[in-house]
Each structure stands twice: as C-alpha cells, then as structure tokens.
C-alpha cells in the first residue's frame, strides 16, 4: 500500500477537505496526517522516508510563506502542492517548494486523483515484476540475483 503524507501549517478547512477527499479515493493509499504546524516532531513523522509523497496544503499566500520557511526540510520528498483556491494565491513563490504537481482545491482535484492513481499503478507494476527487486550487486559491481 502506498503511503501518502498530508501536511499543512494550520488545521484549516482546506486541509480537512483534502483529507476527506484522499480518504474517499478508491486507491490503495495509506494517508498519514502529520500534525499541522509540527511536521517532523511527531511519532507519525518517523514513518517518513526520503522520496515519499508529501502533500502540502496552503489556503493563501501567507500559508505558502510559512511552508517556504521550512522548504529545506521538504526537499527530500516528492511534493504535491494543493492551493485552496486560485484567487487566494496571487504569487508564484510557491514554485520555490519545487512541487511535482500543483492543484487547486476548488477545481482540479481530479488531476490529483489521476496522478496518485498513476503512482499506485507504477507501484503495482513494480511489485508484479519481483525479479527486479531480487537483484543485487556482487563485490565487483556486477548485477547478481539476491538469494531468496
């Protein structure tokens, strides 16, 4: 099951709505809500691994700025940025978070669903080709089969 982490600087209506939306998707996702305001000091954060999917939610420019203050902490993760509504975010500074997908809560959540669905499909395909995962390298750097 694909783990997805969800975070916002506030427990805002936008965050709650996004949480509900993700929970309602019929995808094999485990959604982990990181405590708003303290993403990495909670027990839930110990489940985070580099390259994990982290969905950041911002209601407006101010919340984008709060996220930007800690942007170095997010660099290790694949960021999906959800902005509450197009009208509330006037600056492009959110791009400094280097999100892999930017979507607006008020009108293009289906894009998020498609993106996540594609990631789940890729994960499934990888799982269906187990021999790819059972490879290793010997001391000379040659590819070898890892013992079962």
């Amino acid at each position: 099951m694909q783990k997805i982490f969800l975070y916002s600087s506030n427990y805002s209506p936008a965050l709650q709505r996004m949480h509900r939306y993700l929970s309602g998707l019929s995808l094999k996702l485990q959604i982990i809500l990181l405590p708003p305001g303290s993403p990495f000091s909670s027990p839930a954060s110990l489940e985070l691994r580099s390259n994990d999917l982290l969905i950041l939610v911002a209601e407006n420019d101010q919340e984008v700025e709060v996220l930007l203050r800690n942007r170095i902490d997010y660099e290790e993760f694949r960021i999906i940025l959800i902005l509450a509504q197009q009208a509330a975010v006037t600056s492009n500074r959110y791009m400094l978070l280097s999100p892999r997908l930017v979507a607006y809560l008020d009108h293009d959540l289906p894009r998020v669903a498609e993106y996540l669905s594609n990631i789940c499909r890729i994960q499934t395909v990888t799982r269906q080709v187990p021999h790819l995962l059972r490879t290793s390298f010997n001391s000379k750097g040659n590819l070898t089969k890892r013992p079962h």
């Binding site: 280097s98 999100p99 892999r100 498609e114 993106y115 594609n118 990631i119 890729i122």
Partner: peptide, 9 residues
Amino acid sequence: VVVDCASLP
C-alpha cells in the same frame, strides 16, 4: 521547477 515525467499520466 521539477517535471516528474514518470509519475505524470
């Protein structure tokens, strides 16, 4: 700006 060519449908 990152374009995730593998994950984007």
